[in-house]
């Protein structure tokens, strides 16, 4: 067996690049920069993470491949385009995550359950087509590397949909009614950075757990749905 080089948390940021996000391109770009800089400022934590940034619309495009943020020098650049196809996201992750986990293991790392941070400003434009790949992705029997999914909805994304995308009710958030969308995006990335840093503290301990901080300007989706 190859020597264990470390125990890593693979983290995927799924950023909605659909046309309706156009007015918020600057906030989206700034948020990604602050995420990368925030992780670089915590090298001990960043050493235990591998970050991927994926832009989604009609398809998924890699803005940052699984990267060690201590050494990664490029910044992810988002491109506004097309519709809000959720199926593209889950089809992509179904292929990508198992491959990445095997690759990391092949590099000599042990791997924590991956985490996906999903940000969308709209309802899926592909109807219910996303449900099958999503169900397969989060089913740990069919997909042993099934990720935890944190879903954050802004704009016209509905609370019920975020609850369906997230893997636990406490992982689903929606922007509070009337919230400034640009500010909500910024808060999403602040919270994402804080969640990754907090989770990084808890990794390699007797209590390796995922820590998810609710972003300011967001509320738990379950509170909005009233289940």
């Amino acid at each position: 067996m190859a020597e264990i080089k470390g125990v890593l948390l693979p983290a995927y940021v799924l950023a909605d690049e659909s046309a309706s996000m156009g007015p918020y391109l600057e906030e989206l770009s700034d948020g990604l920069v602050s995420l990368c800089e925030g992780l670089r400022a915590e090298p001990m934590i960043a050493a235990k993470l591998r970050l991927a940034v994926l832009g989604f619309s009609d398809d998924v495009q890699v803005r940052l491949a699984v990267a060690d943020m201590r050494t990664e020098t490029s910044l992810p650049e988002v491109v506004i385009r097309g519709t809000t196809c959720y199926r593209a996201v889950f089809d992509d992750l179904l292929q990508r995550i198992p491959t990445d986990v095997q690759w990391l293991r092949g590099q000599g790392y042990r791997v924590h359950r991956p985490v996906v941070f999903f940000l969308s400003d709209g309802q899926p434009t592909d109807g219910n087509a996303w449900r099958l790949p999503h169900a397969e992705l989060v089913d740990r029997a069919r997909t042993p590397t099934a990720p935890n999914i944190i879903a954050c909805g802004i704009g016209s994304a509905e609370a019920r949909t975020m609850l369906e995308v997230a893997t636990r009710p406490e992982f689903a958030f929606v922007a509070v009614p009337g919230a400034d969308i640009g500010r909500a995006i910024a808060e999403f990335f602040h919270s994402l950075t804080a969640s990754l840093v907090s989770s990084g503290h808890a990794l390699n301990s007797a209590d390796p757990r995922l820590v998810v901080n609710r972003p300011d300007q967001f509320t738990l989706a379950i509170d909005e749905v009233g289940l």
Binding site: V7, V101, R110, V111, H112, R113, T145, A206, P208, R209
Partner: peptide, 8 residues
């Protein structure tokens, strides 16, 4: 083990 267990 494919993934590290988080069960505490």
């Amino acid at each position: 083990t494919l993934l590290v267990s988080n069960e505490v």
